[in-house]
Design a protein around this nucleic acid. Structure first.
Length: 482
RNA sequence: GCCGAGGUGGCAGAAUGGUUAAUGCGACAGACUGCAGAUCUGUUUCUUGGGGGUUCGAUUCCCUCCCUCGGCUCCA
């Protein structure tokens, strides 16, 4: 197991990570409330923790990664009512889309996506414990958590409940003993989904599903909890208050990771401002690799500003610097075979390849500095680039050495799309071949205007032609980059 | 008002108590090419928001002021 450090929000410092039961690591990330389509901000968090999980697994940890789904809450119900559909099936539908987007983005690291409504028994048990231990009270068919009873409330965020300004967004609810109390069991409203309980029919409040789920799946104490920065207060504060009061164990979580939010031109991305950028649209436009690159090109804790006119095109250009040499080398390796004979790399370069991979692991193990990893990859690309031109002469072993840092990036960062195996030849391919043969003859007889005309015509048809010392290659290029 | 994050070159965005403050984008020039593309090489710009302090030395630590963003019970 490689040692690594993480910035822990609770202690406000970068700390060496020590699992409770090595090599196991329990990782919980606050997931989606699927009442609407996902936007690029949601995926930033998902990709961040995907990289965390990938890295830990590479380093020998056995990660159990749980991401919950709040498939029933006020927003889901409100949206369902608006559209005249059952809230739970509305949530299912959006969740299915999210899962597809995650698959496209290469986020396969999550072991389990528990749904809030599948943990009603656990939630009721926890509510019972809280009432028995004097942390919660029932009133008017609902149950509330009494924040004042939990002395350490605020220890994560530094917020003090006395500072809560009355009237801001505090729920006005007469049944509450104090404005900062929050509902953990909400009395049923006719027409809305509800479950029986000792306090009458109702449904879970927001925060308690997470603690019911994590206590059940990860235990009363677990290693790592992640989420977007916006959930730090009050949600995570509430999680701590609920779980630590219910189980009597502390701390609930050893390391808290919070991801900087994605802004839109300096402002928060939100429905009400009308500046949300659809995740699916962006994946369609630039492809998953470029989007992941864009996220990972900054430190996960920094806020990242999304500018529709610049961010993605810049990321695409920069991404090419890595993906193009990688693809060339992979193609050469496929032709030559891993055992193929040929020119070997100078010993110094072979050593540099291994050193680059080691450096990649090293920078990532310092609070997941993906930006530094990408800088390292650029450095390697420049070095490897010296040999890319001669790739046809290199041995399989040499090509593999040149590829090693890129493979690391594929494994841990996931910023490359898999190299599509040569697709079966189609009629269109045959036509391109014919056109290129004509172009080749034109070039041979020095008729460059004809050659350029063919190249332009192909380009207009979405076929990109490039000449090189190794001959002419082409690829079909839709608006999306690779 | 309270809590938190941050202010680094034309832009994006790292890092460090101490040689020339990464990397990428952009721009310019060169190599290669019939041209283009891709690739390589070189050049280009910041003394790190203002002020004060600690130190032999700070962009990095401390204080203060200004500004931006987020949170303050919807939010990844």
């Amino acid at each position: 197991m490689r040692r690594f450090s993480v910035y822990d929000t609770m202690s406000r410092e970068v700390r060496l990570f020590v699992p409770i039961t090595p090599p196991k690591v329990g990782l919980f990330v606050c997931g989606l409330t699927p009442y609407d389509d996902a936007h690029v901000g949601h995926a930033k968090t998902a990709v961040t923790f995907d990289v965390v999980a990938r890295a830990l697994r590479r380093w020998g940890y056995r990660v159990f990664y749980v991401q919950n789904v709040t498939n029933l809450d006020d927003k889901v119900i409100a949206r369902g009512a608006e559209l005249g559909v059952d809230p739970l099936s509305l949530a299912d539908r959006h969740l299915a889309r999210w899962r597809v987007a995650m698959e496209r983005l290469g986020v396969a690291s999550v072991n389990y996506y528990p749904h809030a409504t599948d943990y009603i028994p656990e939630i009721l048990v926890q509510i019972r414990q809280l009432i028995d231990q004097g942390y919660a009270y029932a009133a008017d068919g609902s149950v509330y958590y009494e924040v004042a009873k939990f002395r350490e409330y605020g220890k994560l965020s530094g917020q003090k409940t006395e500072a809560l300004r009355p009237g801001a967004r505090v729920e006005l609810d007469k049944a509450k003993r104090s404005p900062e109390d929050f509902v953990i069991w909400k009395a049923a409203t006719p027409g809305e989904p509800s479950w029986e309980s000792p306090w009458g029919p109702g449904r879970p409040g927001w925060h308690i599903e997470d603690t019911a789920i994590t206590v059940r799946l990860l235990g009363a104490r677990y290693d790592l909890h992640g989420a977007g920065l916006d959930l730090k207060f009050p949600h995570h504060e509430a999680e701590i208050a609920l779980a630590e009061a219910a189980t009597g164990e502390s701390p609930l979580v050893n390391y808290w990771m919070h991801v900087g939010l994605l802004n839109f031109k300096g402002e928060k991305m939100s429905k009400s401002l009308g500046n949300v950028v659809s995740l699916d649209d962006v994946i369609d436009e630039v492809g998953p690799g470029v989007l992941r690159f864009y996220y990972l090109n900054a430190h996960y804790r920094s806020p990242l500003d999304f500018d529709p006119d610049r961010s993605l095109s810049e990321a695409r250009e920069a991404h090419q610097r890595l993906s193009v040499p990688r693809r060339r080398l992979l193609e050469a390796l496929a032709q030559r075979g891993a055992e193929g004979e040929g020119v070997e790399l100078p010993e110094e370069v072979a050593r540099e390849s291994a050193a680059a991979v080691e450096r990649l692991d090293a920078v990532l193990s310092d609070d997941f500095n993906t930006r530094e990893a990408i800088a390292t990859l650029f450095g390697w690309s420049r070095r490897a680039g010296e040999f890319v031109g001669d790739r046809a002469k290199l041995s399989g072993a040499a090509l593999s050495q040149l590829l090693a840092p890129y493979q690391w990036a594929e494994e841990v960062l996931g910023i490359f799309e898999p190299l599509t195996p040569t697709p079966p030849s189609t009629g269109a391919d045959a036509l391109v071949t014919v056109a290129l043969e004509a172009r080749k003859r034109a070039r041979e007889r020095g008729d460059f205007s004809e050659a350029d005309r063919i190249r332009e015509a192909l380009k207009a048809a979405g076929v990109l032609v490039e000449d090189s010392a190794q001959g002419t290659r082409w690829e079909s290029r839709k608006p999306r980059a690779e």
